[in-house]
Design a protein around this nucleic acid. Structure first.
Length: 563
RNA sequence: GCGCCUGUAGCUCAGUUGGAUAGAGCGCUUCCCUCCUAUGCAUUUGCAGAGAGAGGAAGAGGCCAUAGGUUCGAAUCCUAUCAGGCGCGCCA
């Protein structure tokens, strides 16, 4: 629509002595704060500056120069310094509904990224640990970001980069040798490993020993390798279950251990290009002149470190995917690490280093506003969180459907719980710290996941209660509530695009909420079935469901036809 | 100490990239509704509908952390200060 406006304005602007590109005109176009000021507005402040003239007079002069008002607009008028555009809604919205119902799940998509690849690394848990609260955010946000890219037509490669190498495995191996109990391990391997890990961390004197175990592992010690592989295998099995539960898939499972096989070449290259230097027994890259401190490539005991592995892995990925962009969705505590990583790649002469982006996020905080503690071994784990959300959700469902079969309560409860968690996270801008309040997340009213599911189910139940097929006819009249929801439906593609540009899923999340709110107002005010305007309203309900589905698919939220 | 991120209603968060009167939700007060659920009558479509649940509307609630600046115009940009989070050489 903004395109149409720029088309209309271009000539009149030229006539009053200002040549502007269409894109620039579009940039100025905005949506007025109140509907009686029109659907779109062009403010004349900016150009008033250039023309050195009063913005109101300019607005009037431009309006006079617009000879023919195209049929999609009902009126174009001047209010103060603004030129306000009023849409011919009957025509516009008829076309809109037609488009949504025709394009279905494609509505809102673009082909911006045709034949271009974006690599998204996210989730990246550490093996031998339970899926902790820290990795949930990366998983949820990363998944949504990958979906945003896909929605714009990019080929997306989702990579889960496992933390399965490094000193911590020296700790685990040491701990297992010291305190490991095979029976306990067999019963619940991950919990046992977790227990061991905590024990080793408690005592500082174990650190040196653990480093030795890691060195042995890296040198190929049989016993240590066997243990490591065992830990890795049990972890992977656990993770698979988790991702299945969450409904999240990857194109590639990469890992630090695999990357580690490629590090020697990278180290050689760094030495050859005189980027890495010896310092205090370690091999480092000095980055102080860029304000990035020092990056360690190899420790003084000659073992590798994550920075080296990440360098090797990045190079491997570029060779394989020739990506347009690579996005790392990793917590903000690693910001410096990624800055170093990209800088070193740049110093090595890889021009694509500029196309690597680190997207970070804040932390989950407890209800008291303090960080969830991980050191004490009291981390909140994903399964526990899901279980607890499910408890709330199931109680709500049972209250409403006392006769529902237990397994159906279970199925719906899980979906509601997941929606609560996903939405509770994604509605916030990713950089914010989030207070993880399960009660708030699972509430059926307010800005929550369950509210979205509920509204969708409500819309679905209207369609369920009728045999009438939605068939669209020319629009005779429009009520305020209909206009409001249609206006929102119209801007979905725009919002999706913006969310992609800013790599910010919260834009989509808040959009869905707004849409659901408008739908509930519509539902309340406009009877659908049996009304004179049944066909139009059914089409609106159908279009609402479609757009909600499209948006929720981006967010990774699964909907329910019945709550 | 230095660097990055954040600061908007009591609480949780939006704010169209510098524009018209700063918006939602929770909680509080006052109303309204039924094409979701439960119920009764009839029993293929229907009719009624208490309490409850869910939904909607209105009201109250603000020195946009503080102080300066930039300009026609600032929650938005710049500077300083304050508060919180994260990081700053052998963890990832």
């Amino acid at each position: 629509m903004k395109k149409e406006i720029s088309k209309i304005l271009r000539k009149p602007l030229k006539k009053i002595g200002l040549k502007l590109e269409r894109e620039e005109i579009e940039k100025y176009v905005e949506i007025p704060p109140s509907p009686d000021l029109g659907d779109f507005a062009f403010p004349c402040f900016a150009i008033a500056n250039r023309l050195k003239e009063n913005p109101h007079d300019i607005a009037i002069r431009i309006r006079e120069k617009i000879k023919r008002v195209p049929y999609i607009f009902e009126e174009i008028s001047v209010v103060g310094p603004y030129i306000n555009f009023y849409l011919n809604r009957k025509i516009i919205f008829y076309e809109l509904l037609k488009e949504i119902l025709k394009r279905r799940e494609k509505f809102g998509k673009s082909n911006l990224g045709k034949r271009k690849t974006i690599v998204v690394e996210f989730s990246s848990p550490n093996i031998a640990r339970r899926f902790g609260i820290g990795h949930i955010r990366s998983t949820i946000i990363g998944n949504a970001i990958a979906n945003l890219c896909k929605f714009q037509g990019f080929t997306v490669k989702r990579i889960n980069y496992l933390g399965d190498w490094g000193t911590q495995f020296g700790k685990l191996i040491l701990g297992y040798k010291k305190f490991g109990k095979p029976e306990k391990f067999k019963k619940d391997p991950i919990s046992h490993l977790q227990e061991i890990y905590v024990k080793v961390n408690k005592n500082k004197k174990y650190l040196e020993e653990a480093k030795k175990e890691f060195k042995k592992l890296e040198e190929g010690d049989r016993e240590n390798l066997v243990l490591w592989r065992l830990f890795r295998d049990v972890s992977l099995k656990e993770f698979e279950k988790t991702y299945k539960l969450l409904g999240i898939e990857f194109d590639e499972i990469a890992s630090e251990s695999e990357a580690n096989k490629l590090v020697n070449k990278v180290i050689e290259e760094l030495k050859e290009k005189k980027i890495a230097k010896k310092s205090k027994g370690a091999l480092v890259v000095h980055l102080k002149k860029y304000g990035l401190g020092t990056a360690i490539i190899k420790k003084s005991d000659d073992t590798t470190i994550y920075c080296t592995r990440d360098l090797a892995e990045a190079i491997r990925r570029y060779r394989k995917f020739k990506f347009e962009k690579m996005i790392y969705e990793v917590g903000q505590e690693q910001t410096l690490h990624f800055k170093q990583l990209f800088k070193i790649l740049e110093m090595m002469g890889y021009e694509w280093a500029k196309r690597c982006i680190h997207i970070s996020h804040g932390l989950y905080l407890g209800k008291d506003g303090k960080k969830f503690s991980t050191r004490k071994g009291k981390t909140a784990h994903l399964e526990e969180i899901i279980e607890e959300c499910k408890k709330y959700a199931k109680a709500e469902i049972k209250k409403r459907f006392p006769n529902l079969k237990e397994e159906e309560v279970e199925r719906r409860g899980l979906k509601v719980a997941l929606a609560a968690i996903f939405y509770g996270d994604l509605k916030n801008h990713r950089m914010r710290n989030i207070i993880f309040d399960i009660e708030r997340f699972t509430s059926f009213d307010g800005n929550t996941g369950p509210y979205i599911l509920y509204t969708y189910a409500r819309a679905s139940s209207i369609l369920k209660n009728t045999k009438a097929k939605t068939k669209l006819e020319k629009i005779e009249s429009l009520d305020e509530n209909e206009i409001q929801i249609l206006k929102l439906l119209e801007i979905f593609p725009e919002r999706a695009r913006k969310a992609f540009e800013e790599l910010d899923p919260s834009i989509v999340a808040n959009y869905v909420y707004e849409l659901c709110k408008k739908f509930n107002e519509f539902y309340h005010a406009c009877r659908v079935l049996g009304s004179e305007k049944e066909s139009l309203r059914l089409a609106i309900v159908e279009a609402f469901r479609q757009v909600t589905r499209n948006a929720c698919k981006i967010l990774g939220i699964q909907l329910l036809d019945e709550m």
